[in-house]
Write a protein that binds this DNA or RNA. Structure first.
Lengths: 229, 229
DNA sequence: AATATACCGTGTAGATATTACACTAAGTAA
DNA sequence: TTACTTAGTGTAATATCTACACGGTATATT
């Protein structure tokens, strides 16, 4: 830092709100802290930004370190900079969210020792969170509620092949309300971004549903037009 | 900063995209820099954050120092943190936008000497901008394009008493397209947030239009419902 | 084999919202 | 008086949204 810029130097951190969907519930990834302050409290995964990485890179690195997951699109949604938000000094935190596919294959890797453990927690049963993380989480949830109406982010929570009922569940859980089955299907199919795989669900104890896949190429053609739920 | 947090200390700043509306044009406030780097270049008004202020407070202070204007609602929209964005070191910048009422009474006060002058510039005729300010501006403009469809921010650009034609102009300029007069009026009035002042425009050389005022109390009652253009 | 169970998948009618479109009224200026 | 400029208004056609119920099909159970 040159002498022309004498002002406040502050520490920067990233906090991540990672959403997952499992067993019909919306989950968020929390860690149990192993360090003061807020030792033993639950918190959003987050860490300090390194010198030579952009914010986006830093968010990707932190996600990788905590979960082993790579190549996930993360989106910055707000920066929290209240003076007293961190008891150890002026720390400004840039918050990101991401939507993750859960399920068997992608278990969470052991994480760095600043946390004891990481768990997917139902967003309806959140424990008290460290720092201002409740506020960050709330704002992240608001963000995806708005975004899911206009952007194809719901698909990122589901396996590649999914049924329309599963997709509707994602919308219902995030928006917090029931949707009409026929109207939902009519509208969703009308966007023409779902590929019917001519394939049925397996391993269910009732009539199997048709599987679909989100078709990015077709979605690209919609560019500019507004999707709206 | 305590020893528990050894990582990156970075300087951070606020940059403001201040929108104004004048003579049917959308304007943005730019300053001409009086310091290296980018001496003599045009830039968005912005400055370094002080130690004891929150980001919101800092944005309000910087706006005040540059324009003399107070009590304007500013909204944070993105944080720019690419490694090379500032030639003098790692500076992370939190960007805010605000919508300002221009016109006679609220002239710009003399500003601190890091800038030679400040001017309202038509957004269609922007000069080359310092740093990554073009990117910041572009993103700010995108933000208000999206926001104007759902939030009552257009009124903030107009005098307290305005005509429906003026309001339509604001929408047309920001959205970058012509709107149908009858449909615009029908829809805008249907929201029931405009108070007819039973008063006519003055000083125009043609038939005077009815003046309206935005009614915040009525708008409050809409809370939760989505407005959509 | 018959039956129960559970979810899948589909259509329509009424209400509401959106779009496209053109002329008369009112005030000012010459 | 006339010319000019903007204000202000309605309707019909179309598209979208909403509410709503039942037969089909695979599995599990007896």
């Amino acid at each position: 830092m040159k002498e022309v810029l004498p002002q406040l130097n502050s520490t920067f951190s990233i906090d991540c709100v990672l959403f997952g969907f499992d067993e019909g519930e919306l989950k968020v990834l929390l860690i149990e802290r192993n360090e003061e302050p807020f030792k033993d409290w639950w918190a959003l995964p987050g860490y300090l930004v390194n010198e030579n990485e952009s914010l986006d890179q830093s968010a990707a690195r932190i996600l990788h370190e905590l979960t082993g997951i790579e190549n996930v699109y993360m989106e910055q949604f707000y920066t929290f900079g209240d003076v007293g938000r961190h008891p150890q000094g002026r720390i400004i935190s840039v918050a990101y969210y991401a939507m993750l596919r859960l399920g068997g294959d992608k278990a969470l890797k052991p994480i760095s020792n600043y946390a004891k453990q990481a768990h997917w927690i139902n967003v309806k049963e959140l424990p008290p969170l460290a720092f201002d993380h409740q506020k960050i989480f709330d704002q992240g949830l608001e963000k995806i509620k708005r975004r899911i109406k206009h952007q194809p982010i719901a698909f990122e929570l589901l396996p590649e092949k999914f049924t329309l009922t599963q997709l509707q569940n994602v919308y219902e859980v995030i928006l917090g309300k029931k949707l009409d089955k026929r109207n939902f299907r009519k509208k969703m199919l009308s966007f023409n971004v779902l590929k019917d795989l001519n394939e049925k669900q397996k391993g269910v104890s009732f009539r199997a549903a048709t599987l679909y896949r989100f078709d990015k190429r077709k979605y690209g053609k919609l560019f500019g037009k507004e999707i709206s739920f």
